[in-house]
Amino acid sequence: MTAGPIAPGRGAARRRALVERTALLGPGLLYLLAFMAIPIALILVYTIFTRGRFGGVVFTPTLDNFTRALDPIYTAVLGSSLAIAGITTTIALLLGYPTAYAIAMLPKRWRTVALILVVLPFWTNFLIRTYAWIVLLNSEGVVNQALVGAGLIDRPLELLYTRGAVVAGLVYAYLPLMILPVYASIERLDPQLREAAANLGAGRARTFFDVTLPLTLPGVITGALFVFVPSLGNFIVPELLGGGKTVMVGNVIRDQFLKARDWPFGAVLALAVIVFLVVLFVLQSWASRRVSTGGRDA
């Protein structure tokens, strides 16, 4: 789209287009530069400097922050965070994919309703959504009461303050972010492809694994990205549902910035989160490119 059909001389038109472009794009991009790009660049830069006494940094270069991050205490935290985020993503996929598929098979009217119902909880306060699980999983909570009441168990189970509780809270928080992109990729799928596979004698499982799944892979990877990344950096769920027993990398980052006041070390841990974000992002764009060139994705 160009600015308009009037052409009072090329120089003037070009200048006017430049002014319009600057006026439209300038303020927002400058804002994001100042309050997003520079702050994140700052975190990256801080990783190689020395901690200040009361927070902040002293600009003496050092690699100590990186060697400290390799300490078994912190690699263990990072490993368990990756494991928890990975399990969360897997469960969200196993539950989200068939749900997205079922939504895509609904009549059009109901599809919109079903999608709104998926998104709605996502827009409520994160703390409240996490808090709801304390109410459910507490030893006197609803789940235990129901299980005892039904005579399935004699004494309440220890459900809260476990790794399982953390995973449940994270899946609950981010499941909609898996369902939406997967749904979008299933909905775009040409039903004729599946029919063709069936006509050629492929069974339902074979059709799914050879046709449907590869073509919806970009949606799956996008969903995995949307679930994995915020799970990895989360510190509220491990704190409230893990009860301090399950420490994730987000908790350590938070503590380094607000309690221990070791910003450069906190920055190194944040860098780890950013690296996983970038890797998944590259993977996602690679997968969607592969499908759009190799398949017949619209």
Partner: peptide, 17 residues
Amino acid sequence: APAIMPDIVLGIGLLAF
């Protein structure tokens, strides 16, 4: 980008900034 940026990264970045 801000929509997918982990909020903790944006939070500490802005604190530092």
